Simulated scan of single mutants.
Amino acid sequence: MDFAGAYSADHLKFLLDGLYVTLIVAFFSIILSFVIGCVVGIIRYARVPFLSPIMFVLVELIRNLPLLLIIFFIRFALPEVGIRMGLMAAAIAALTIFEAAMIAEIVRGGLTSIDKGQIEAARSSGLGNFQTLWHIVLPQGLRRMVPPLVSQFISLLKDTSLAVVISLPELMHHAGIVIGHGYSYAIPTLLLVALIYFTVNFLLSLLSRRLESREN
């Protein structure tokens, strides 16, 4: 084990460059999947005619496919029909599609958990369906969704490592290159990568607990 060689200035900078790509991909995937997941989850909760059954089929289809397959499909299959994306765009698109399906179910479950008595009381006071959803159901539902949403975001961050299969220059891809310079670098490099993932995800967990405690 060559810790000194593995942790040379050049190698550390190279790994940090990979971490930067990982965080960029995770950031945009989280934002996009959250927005899309919320819209789809609300549509499913509201049982919008025609749209809700379509969303149900799409969500169940995506949730039961491996993320790796979606990554391969977007990167290698879509160009066959004229849709071409760069490495980062393909990774973000795949993660967004996959995670949006998961988040849609979290959103739908959170909204469904709201006591029906509150909904009936809101409607009896003159609020319409949309007003009830916006002012009564959604604020309470979002508070209940915080822990599972953060857990899903942590999973998303870890799933960015799967983009190594399309040679996205993210953290694991760069770690593999460092290890390729000498197998004595393997254990030190992987330990450092594990520490980086743990630190970022642990910070997200702390944020989740803080948000949850503030709501209680």
Score class of each variant (00 low, 15 high):
199 T>S: 15
149 L>R: 04
196 I>A: 01
143 R>I: 00
195 L>E: 10
71 I>W: 04
13 K>A: 13
116 K>E: 09
7 Y>S: 05
150 V>A: 09
137 V>K: 03
184 S>H: 07
62 I>Y: 06
4 A>T: 12
121 A>N: 15
22 T>Y: 00
65 L>I: 10
110 G>R: 09
75 R>P: 00
20 Y>I: 00
104 A>F: 04
156 L>S: 00
167 S>R: 11
186 A>R: 08
175 A>F: 14
214 R>G: 08
21 V>A: 02
135 H>F: 02
171 L>G: 08
7 Y>F: 15
34 F>K: 01
4 A>R: 13
79 P>H: 04
108 R>N: 13
191 L>V: 12
69 L>W: 05
17 D>Y: 01
66 P>Q: 14
108 R>Y: 06
39 V>T: 10
99 E>K: 03
23 L>R: 07
100 A>K: 05
130 F>D: 04
27 F>Q: 14
124 S>I: 13
210 R>V: 04
143 R>A: 04
196 I>E: 00
153 F>L: 13
111 L>Q: 11
194 A>E: 07
149 L>N: 03
61 L>A: 12
173 H>Y: 15
35 V>C: 02
112 T>F: 09
207 L>N: 01
104 A>S: 08
183 Y>S: 04
209 R>L: 03
127 L>K: 02
8 S>F: 11
47 R>N: 12
66 P>W: 01
207 L>D: 00
23 L>G: 00
